[in-house]
């Protein structure tokens, strides 16, 4: 396998990173909203939030992607397949991130919130200064794993015709008849990206760990 082929894969991996990063970002915003709705205690918003999470965690991403890809034009939204793919990935990761965030908030010890109460902090201040920072620190490892999960899952958007690392590998493999080195290289590139993300996660954890009981 030539270096040119490898370089084509590396270039395509840039798209993988972009689609994943955008999905993780929008997914996080959506997850925060879902988590807020779930913990709000109001059934009118909590129930749909839980249903959303259950559906997107309970069905294969491949089928979610295809469903969204075919559903959007049917309801009059003619968007490029890249957008459909990012929506699918965002919804999927939002459901997982929402569960992670919920777990984080529920793991904040009751005592530290009571201490904030006794010091006169308002509900707002308690959320912003005490519960949120502690929850984020508690969820950092799980959020890092989720980011890696989405980077890997993004390989599935090749099925709706979006060009990224796996699509490129598949095309090159069938045109050059060298599936072994090409798919191995693709795997290697995914591995490198994920190791970097895992390293970033560890670094973030370590810089937050000093402040942990």
């Amino acid at each position: 396998m030539s270096w040119e082929l490898f370089w084509l894969l590396v270039e395509a991996s840039g798209l993988t990173i972009v689609y994943s990063a955008v999905s993780i970002f929008f997914g996080f915003l959506l997850a925060a909203a879902i988590c807020g709705a779930d913990l709000s205690g109001r059934a009118a918003v909590a129930r749909p939030a839980r249903l959303f999470v259950s559906f997107f965690r309970g069905t294969p991403l491949l089928i979610q992607l295809l469903l969204i890809y075919y559903l959007l034009p049917k309801i009059g939204l003619n968007v490029p397949s890249e957008v459909a793919a990012v929506i699918g990935l965002s919804f999927s990761t939002a459901s997982y991130q929402a569960e992670i965030l919920r777990g984080g908030f529920q793991s904040v010890p009751r005592g530290v919130v009571e201490a904030a109460d006794m010091c006169g902090l308002s509900a707002r201040a308690t959320f912003r200064r005490i519960r949120l920072p502690i929850a984020v620190r508690l969820t950092l490892p799980a959020l890092t794993s989720e980011a890696i999960m989405i980077l890997k899952s993004s390989s599935l958007i090749s099925v709706v015709g979006v060009v990224e690392l796996t699509t490129m590998a598949k095309d090159l493999a069938s045109s050059t008849y060298q599936p072994l080195p090409i798919f191995a290289s693709a795997g290697f590139i995914y591995l490198v990206i994920n190791l970097v993300v895992a390293g970033l996660g560890l670094w973030a954890e370590r810089s937050a760990r000093r402040g942990h009981a």
């Binding site: 010890p109 005592g111 530290v112 201490a115 006794m118 920072p133 620190r137 937050a208």
Partner: peptide
Amino acid sequence: IGMVFQQFNLWPH
């Protein structure tokens, strides 16, 4: 009122 808890309840961050 000031309160001191059995588990200290300092804010870890």
